[in-house]
Design a protein around this nucleic acid. Structure first.
Lengths: 199, 199
DNA sequence: ACGCCGATGACAGTCGCTGCCATCAAGCCT
DNA sequence: AGGCTTGATGGCAGCGACTGTCATCGGCGT
């Protein structure tokens, strides 16, 4: 595998997390990350497309956990319940690494570039959820809308989970957010094409 | 104002749109944009924070149009109807510049960097909507969730509007998307804490 | 022992982006 | 008219992210 020590990729991820936390993302150069990992800058870019991507190594596993329940759900299960199952599974996965998730989120929150990348990753997940729903017979644009709404539900629950002092149950927060979604969408009046909004 | 010709900012925006369309975003350098606008690279970065931002000059106006109806809505109006009014106003604004919107969206769709920036802009709008809802008494995390759901509704309608051959009514598409949202969230069963997803 | 191959190092180069200072144009004051 | 101030611009040097290219090293099979 590697020329000397094994798991070059993992060492780069660890070095990046440590340096981003210590000096901040923008004050850390790729060369410094590589040096800390015992590698060169050029090798960093062979393992990660750019300076941001090193924080998203677990995105693949997360995606699988999120999608599996949606794909596996029986046909009779309502779309929102299939999505809820996926969100719950994803939440359980993160709950096993709460400290890691918090540190990672603190880093991302400190940099606009990283927030943009995270939004892109979440949008990609929304698209994958939409694909899974289409496979279940849901048409566009309902499938895409549902995928994005599911991600919005996840984000709302995730923020509470990260912010909460106590070790609250993440899947339960997902369930709460879903309840709020239903309150929002369900308690409304039929919509005229143009609403009287002022005067 | 300017040293020679007026509206340096506008000239840079036009030059960027033209070059991004002609050779693609990644094959266009900032120096080329500046040269086409009769300016220098250094001046480009005085008007725009980075190479992406030059495509988002109208974001401020769009934000105002989106937010105004939400802020101005009477207290009795349900949150989702206030959001619907804002989305409708924003849609009307874009409908007046359909060709421009299409060209701009084609550019954004061609570059991952630009898609990330657009997602960040949309997320910022979702946050602003959440702020407006909080001013109306909606608590967190319902306000943030509602803001993001509203943006998801907008995106679903926007994609249809851009893709459609005919000149369909954008505000009507917004209304359709809202209907799909209600179908998604309203037609669900109560949620058990753990769902049977497999086996 | 030899050769193959994937991973790494080394180097040069482009481009996005910033700091610093000089320069120019226009308005204002005397 | 002449000089001063102010805001926008040009020019230049430099850093850091990222890429292409080639040499090199280590492990592996034969």
């Amino acid at each position: 595998m590697g020329r000397w020590e094994p798991d070059a990729r993992g060492r780069l991820e660890e070095a990046a997390m440590a340096l981003y936390s210590l000096r901040g993302y923008e004050n850390t150069t790729v060369a410094e990350i590589a040096e800390r990992a015992g590698l060169t800058e050029r090798t960093f870019f062979r393992h990660f497309a750019d300076k941001r991507e090193v924080l998203f190594g677990a995105a693949g596993t997360f995606r699988e956990r999120l999608l599996a329940p949606v794909v596996a759900a029986a046909d009779e299960v309502a779309p929102i319940d299939a999505l809820a199952a996926g969100l719950g599974a994803a939440a359980e996965m993160l709950q096993e690494r709460r400290d890691f998730s918090r540190q990672r989120q603190a880093i991302i929150a400190s940099s606009g570039e990283l927030q943009e990348r995270e939004l892109a990753k979440l949008a990609s997940l929304a698209g994958a959820l939409a694909d899974a729903l289409r496979a279940r017979g849901i048409q566009e644009p309902a499938a895409s809308l549902a995928g994005e709404v599911a991600i919005a539900v996840f984000r709302a629950a995730f923020e509470r989970w990260i912010a909460d002092e106590d070790d609250v149950d993440f899947p339960q927060l997902i369930s709460d957010s879903l309840g709020q979604l239903k309150a929002l969408a369900g308690g409304a009046t039929p919509r005229p094409k143009t609403l009287p909004v002022s005067g």
